[in-house]
C-alpha cells in the first residue's frame, strides 16, 4: 500500500489518460440535477463531488440483466462469462461496503462464477464523500469510511487529492499518474480530518443504537405494530429493492432469440417487496400481505443477511430507498428507531 498526493489538475490528466488507454472507464457524472454511474467520455464529466448516485454501482458487479447460459432451444446449454475489464471510478465508501458484502455472499458456499469473474475484472477507484446527500446515514451504519475492497481510494482534501493505492491493480494505474508524490504528514493529517468529519456528517437520519444491536432488536419485534402501520401505505413497487446497493435477489428467465432456435438463460434483478416474490406453483403466496414483505426486507438487512456474513449489517446507510419510496415509508432508521422505543435490548 502506498499513499500519494496529486493536484486536481494532475488528477484530471490521470482520468484523461485512463479514458484514452483503458478499455472501459465508468465514472459518476451529472444527469439533470442528480448523478449516475455511466461510461465516462471525458475527464471533465467526472463529478467526484457528487452526493449520491441514483442507482448504486451494483449494476456493474451484478447487472440488471446478465446472461448466465446460451442454449439451443430444447437442447444443451453453455456457460457464458461476459464480464470485461472495467474501471469503476468514484465509488463511495458505503457502496464499497455493499460490494464487499456481495463479494462474500457470491463466493461463499456455492461459488458463483458469473458474479466473481465479472467482479475480478473490475478495478474500483473509491472516493470519500465530499457532499453528503439529503438522506445519507452512513455514519450511523459504520460505513462513512471504508478500509478494504477498493484498488485505489481518493480523498479530496481541498487543493489536492490523496491517492491510496491498495492493490496490484491499483499500482498499475499509477503509471498514468507520473506527477504523484508520496503524501506528506500534513496530507495524511488532512485526510484523517476528512474521515473524522465524515464519521459525523453523513448522518441525516440518526440510528439510536449501534448497528450491531439490530439482529437482537429485530429478534424481539417480529409482531411489532410498525410493520402494519408502514406497510399499509406500501405500493409494492419494489423501488426500495431496485435502488438498494445490498439487494441481490434475482429471477432466472429463458429468453428465446428471433431465430426461434437459440436463446439465453438470464438472471434479472428481483425484489422481495413485489407481490409474487414468494409465490409457488398453484398460486400459493407465502408472503401475501404487504406487511410481511415490508418486514422481510428490513429483517434481511438487519438480521438474516448479517447471519451469513459475520454480523455485518446489510444496510449501508446510502439513503437511496428513502429518496425512492413514493409512500415515504422505506426509511430503515425510522423503523428501527420505532422498534427501539419499545424494546429493552440490554
Amino acid at each position: 500500500m502506498s499513499v500519494n498526493t496529486v493536484s486536481k489538475d494532475q488528477f484530471k490528466q490521470f482520468v484523461a489518460a485512463l479514458i484514452a488507454s483503458e478499455p472501459s472507464v465508468v465514472g459518476v457524472q451529472a444527469k439533470g440535477d442528480r448523478f449516475v454511474f455511466d461510461d465516462l467520455k471525458s475527464a471533465d464529466a467526472l463529478r467526484l463531488d457528487y452526493d449520491v448516485s441514483i442507482l448504486s454501482p451494483r449494476k456493474y458487479v451484478m447487472p440488471q440483466k446478465e446472461t448466465l447460459l446460451k442454449f439451443e432451444v430444447g437442447g444443451d446449454c453453455q456457460s457464458v462469462q461476459d464480464g470485461k475489464p472495467l474501471i469503476l471510478l468514484g465509488v463511495h465508501p458505503y457502496d464499497m461496503a455493499a460490494i464487499n458484502q456481495m463479494d462474500e455472499l457470491f463466493s461463499q458456499d456455492e461459488y458463483d462464477t458469473h458474479y466473481m469473474c465479472r467482479r475480478r475484472q473490475i478495478t474500483i477507484i473509491a472516493c470519500d464523500v465530499v457532499s453528503p446527500s439529503k438522506n445519507v446515514f452512513a455514519s450511523s451504519m459504520g460505513t462513512a469510511t471504508v478500509q478494504h475492497g477498493y484498488d485505489m481510494l481518493l480523498t479530496d482534501v481541498g487543493e489536492s487529492i490523496i491517492v491510496e493505492v491498495r492493490t496490484d491493480k491499483g499500482r498499475v494505474l499509477m503509471n498514468h499518474m507520473p506527477a504523484a508524490r508520496p503524501a506528506s504528514e500534513d496530507d495524511l493529517a488532512k485526510r484523517s480530518a476528512v474521515w473524522e468529519k465524515n464519521q459525523h456528517v453523513l448522518n441525516k437520519h440518526v440510528l439510536e443504537c449501534k448497528p450491531s444491536y439490530l439482529p437482537k432488536l429485530l429478534e424481539k419485534n417480529y409482531d411489532h405494530p410498525v410493520w402494519e402501520e408502514k406497510a399499509r401505505l406500501c405500493y409494492s413497487c419494489g423501488s426500495c429493492n431496485q435502488v438498494c446497493p445490498t439487494c441481490y435477489c434475482f429471477d432466472v428467465q429463458d429468453v428465446v432469440n428471433w431465430d426461434m432456435k437459440t436463446g439465453s438463460r438470464v438472471r434479472v434483478w428481483d425484489g422481495c417487496l413485489l407481490e409474487n416474490f414468494a409465490t409457488v406453483a398453484g398460486d400459493h403466496n407465502f408472503r401475501k400481505n404487504r406487511s410481511s414483505r415490508f418486514r422481510h426486507r428490513l429483517y434481511r438487512k438487519g438480521k438474516y443477511v448479517p447471519g451469513k456474513i459475520g454480523g455485518q449489517i446489510a444496510c449501508v446507510g446510502c439513503g437511496r430507498c428513502i429518496t425512492a419510496c413514493t409512500a415515504d415509508i422505506a426509511n430503515p432508521v425510522n423503523v428501527y428507531n420505532q422498534l427501539m422505543e419499545r424494546t429493552d435490548i440490554g
Binding site: D112, Y248, F250, D251, D270, F277, R300, Y304
Partner: peptide
C-alpha cells in the same frame, strides 16, 4: 444454491 432469495423463510 442459496443466492436468489426466493425460497427464504425468515
Amino acid at each position: 444454491v442459496g443466492k436468489c432469495g426466493h425460497c427464504q423463510i425468515n
